[in-house]
Design a protein around this nucleic acid. Structure first.
Lengths: 344, 344
DNA sequence: GTGAAAGCGCTAACAC
DNA sequence: GTGTTAGCGCTTTCAC
């Protein structure tokens, strides 16, 4: 009737008291040595007996009881709106988990899958577990209105932000757009198309702003014919081929890797080669796409792992009073083979 | 210095005792009404005052304290070897999280990223938090040797298994291979190639066995020329085009969606159309690939979400004595547009 | 050096 | 109906 088949049957966990009895000392002595308290003066004999008893009994301190005494737990709550929807959320979890872990904290994860009611319940549950703080994260970068419950504990927004709300950690969309365009410009391209998404978002605005900035700094005049919009999926990129070709662009910045993939397909169907005929740059660095297209897609990485890490840091270290209300994390360029260097 | 900028400053949480004082009753009375105990006979007046006090003070029960009293927590530990590596792990987390949640349990996640040492530490930490049990999951289906610590609590293996080890929940690879081949057979194909992976694994063995079974039940003789092996990535599929074409196959079962994607690319480069010239079936149902190839890729889904759910169920409900040591979860076929119905 | 005892927030007898 | 009290496993003064 128990799930584990092999091995010794599990019994009630060994307690401090039992260890004390076994070692013939008091509980406080055991507590002292178990926690390796520096300035605890314990006799060598006693210490040895305690250590032996701990070992023999297989004692595991009860973290719950410890937490109770200290009035606070070593938990960090992570509420996400869609760990399912995307490989991205996993990376945030991963980063947060690594950083929390390295500081002796455990991640308590709660997934609301976007349901506000589930979200409130999740937060309540986290609060009841006396989490040290909560990371509220979204799977794509956007503005949110943070659930009320969050005000009861320290909160950091991850991959989202709220005006006048908690401190936020977000990707640097502008810098990313800049980096993307620069890859093309650095390779000698001057006619660079930009396929943006149709849905309003910090990504849409920011990446375009970055692109414009890159053109400006290179002294390339902007041409409206080069800026287009399409559904931010493979289909969207595919649907843009005609306009891209017509625009005479030699390089294209895509809103994301999926759009780039669609563009690849469309370009290839027209007999155009990448990067020989058209250079393409993506955004997101979605491994499964970018690394495996032929040629590999040069793109800009969304720093999800780093967002998770930075979120935990902000939570644990606090943010200096007077600091900005937002920390932007760099989106680094990733070069693969989809950009051809052209020599004028 | 605190992360949350707006709102009322956070203070020491309100306790039962404070509520009791406020309501002018004893702690037990508060406990009774707070927990909505059915057969607790509480005066209407008292109940009302308590409820009011709880509300006014914003009381949140301390789950840690409750757990301490009950001697057990409502935590389930999930240790995974690679939440980062793949979108898949996220789905297992999601499924486990949903099921745990619906039963009032919280998921404590620990990611070892394959590092055995980190794994042991993670398990120790989970154990110290007195988790109700542990789900030990891997990102691809394989045999494992479960870390020693697991024997101290109930354990369920998810997406992996160990001979004589804990109960395991795994995908039905054979059934999946069967389903994949059947899609082609049902569409009238008789010459069906199978691009397997080169790496030994339950997936390699099982899917091939399923394919063979499907051929057998359809009375189609097996042709060794139709069975090939390739790296289980886009590159592998791409590299197989020649052999596939040479084999005269009208349909191809790929070891996974990535291989199928590579095959798509290679086929298209040779001017062959899918599904008109060649029908293709994948495996995994990796949304980001399968749903967005042109045409959409018919494939077989790896039931990661369900594995997570089933893992939690097995943990919480226990497995009936005498049951098999393993539960296989169905891999359902997902039809898109990559299979052409041929009429003989 | 080591032990006794109080108390963390809560539940569950058991009184009254 | 409601209050008192004894723990749950642990840390931490404070005696000795």
């Amino acid at each position: 009737m128990t799930a584990m088949s092999g091995s010794e049957g599990r019994r009630r966990p060994v307690t401090l008291k039992e260890v004390a009895a076994r070692a013939g000392v008091s509980v406080s002595t055991v507590s002292l040595v178990a926690n390796g308290k520096k300035n605890a003066r314990i006799g060598d004999a006693a210490r040895a007996r305690v250590l032996a008893a701990i070992d023999e009994l297989g004692y595991r301190p009860n973290a719950l009881a410890k937490n109770l005494v200290h009035g606070e737990s070593r938990f960090i709550g992570l509420v996400t709106d869609g760990i399912a929807s995307t490989p991205f959320a996993g990376q945030v979890v991963h980063g947060a988990q690594d950083e929390a872990w390295s500081r002796g904290y455990m991640l308590l994860i709660a997934n609301s899958e976007g349901n506000p009611e589930a979200e409130e319940r999740a937060i309540a549950m986290l609060l009841e577990h006396k989490v040290h703080g909560i990371l509220y994260s979204t799977w794509y970068h956007r503005e949110v209105v943070p659930p009320a419950g969050l005000s009861e504990t320290d909160t950091v927004l991850v991959n989202c932000f709220a005006d006048g709300g908690p401190f936020a950690v977000v990707p640097d969309e502008v810098g990313g757009g800049l980096a993307a365009a620069r890859m093309l410009i650095a390779a000698g391209h001057r006619r660079i198309a930009f396929i943006n998404t149709t849905t309003e978002s910090p990504a849409k605005q920011g990446r375009l702003a970055g692109y414009r900035h890159a053109l400006a700094e290179a002294g390339i005049p902007e041409d409206p014919a080069l800026i287009m919009e399409a559904e931010s999926a493979q289909e969207g990129g595919y649907a843009c081929v005609e306009r891209v070709v017509a625009s005479g662009a030699t390089g294209v910045c895509c809103h994301n890797d999926r759009v780039a993939q669609g563009l690849y397909d469309g370009l290839k169907e027209r007999g155009l080669r990448i990067p020989d005929d058209v250079s393409v740059v993506g955004f997101d660095n979605q491994e499964i796409i970018a690394a495996h297209l032929r040629p590999g897609l040069s793109t800009v990485a969304l720093p999800h792992y780093e967002l998770g890490v930075a979120g935990v840091r902000a939570l644990l270290d606090g943010v200096p009073a007077g600091a900005a209300d937002r920390l932007t994390i760099e989106c680094p360029p990733v070069e693969r083979g989809s950009v051809l260097t052209v020599t004028a």
